[in-house]
Design a protein around this nucleic acid. Structure first.
Lengths: 206, 206
DNA sequence: GTATTTATGTACTACTAAGTACAATATATT
DNA sequence: AATATATTGTACTTAGTAGTACATAAATAC
């Protein structure tokens, strides 16, 4: 059972793995983002990772599980900012940081101009698999966190007392998701930042 | 050459088609919206349409062309409102109608809660095919139309003189696209209407 | 050194996809 | 009635997919 052995067992039995599991996951993530879930074949994966078919199955289970693991990494990496921003001083700063970081991520040259989570949440390819429900649930959780932060802002007098914190949250996340689509469709960084500015101009809080 | 004969030749040669091409396109549209482009097999199509495989190819070319034709029909049908709303009296009414009609369409029970055009514009499945460029170009055209309408509003004194009509357009279409994702993810009609209301509350024009 | 364990590489299976060949059928034209 | 034309239905081809069997290689444990 060895419950304590989860951290770095110095020596592992058997032939050592030829590749780095974490780097492979990152590479797989890139492929999935560029081509989408269904359109990505396992051959695409093995070529991108430079390893053989059975190694993928041995390391990650199957295609669906591989995707789920890549997505999990995405949530903890690229889009971790969605939780970080909650600690900003005012509701306005929360929203500003959230949208600015989002634009930054969407327009940085190395990555495809898309958000894997948002894209996957509407991809009908994933509807059959159980993955999509997790994604949607994750996005919902993010909304709940923002809503709580806005409630705090109301309590602090940052936002008006009669603010509907949930609807305001939905409004912000609607723009957030919209930005992701606009970026995919080729809207420039300048334009995206301009959209954020317009959003902030009419922000009800400080 | 018979250039004038494009309209309803009363008698057609050969064995008559067993099905209605227009109705078949509508049915295909439904399937594509529910399952996505790649995930929809030709067998799905033939079953939904109640016709045989070669009939599909004879009538529509191939899968890609079938999709393109279904999409064209979608543009002229369900989302024609995007052009209609331009004739509203004020910029505010234009935006209000646009977003309200959008929510209406996204939440009507008969249709899947998604916009085929928006979904297809980011679907990496279609990136290879030439279709996606058309879709993105179509969405861009819609934005140009709105921008022109806002310019008119500025000239009429409806919107402030210093308004950046293009960025304001991008802001509105960002929300429009965001609504489509939110609807897909299960946001209720009430919530969606609430988001529209918040957007209108801070509208710079009358 | 020998046994055990795990990963690798090659080659495969089973399946499903898009697209098609071809004979049969139903209409219009003559 | 005979012919030309276009659609239909059955059955097929070709190609690409996810997933796997199995012998081999590389490490640790004893």
């Amino acid at each position: 059972m060895q419950a304590m052995k989860t951290v770095a067992p110095t020596k592992t039995l058997g032939r050592p793995r030829k590749f780095d599991k974490d780097l492979a996951l990152d590479a797989a993530l890139q492929v999935f983002m560029q081509k989408g879930y269904e359109a990505t074949s396992l051959t695409d994966i093995t070529e991108a990772l430079g390893i053989n078919r059975p190694s993928v199955y041995a390391a990650f289970g199957n295609k669906e599980e591989l995707f789920a693991q890549a997505l999990a990494k995405y949530n903890q990496g690229p889009i971790a900012y969605l939780n970080d921003v909650l600690s900003e001083r005012t509701s306005r700063d929360v929203v500003k940081e959230m949208l600015m970081k989002s634009v930054e991520l969407l327009t940085c040259a190395e990555q495809p101009r898309a958000c894997l989570a948002i894209q996957s949440s509407i991809s009908s390819e994933l509807a059959a698999a159980g993955i999509q429900q997790n994604i949607v649930a994750g996005l919902h959780q993010i909304e709940m966190n923002i809503k709580n932060r806005f409630d705090q802002a109301i309590a602090e007098g940052d936002l008006p007392k009669d603010t509907d914190s949930w609807l305001l949250t939905k409004y912000v996340t609607t723009i957030h998701k919209g930005l992701s689509i606009q970026a995919s469709n080729g809207t420039s960084a300048e334009e995206l930042y301009g959209i954020v500015e317009i959003t902030l101009k009419s922000w009800p809080g400080k």
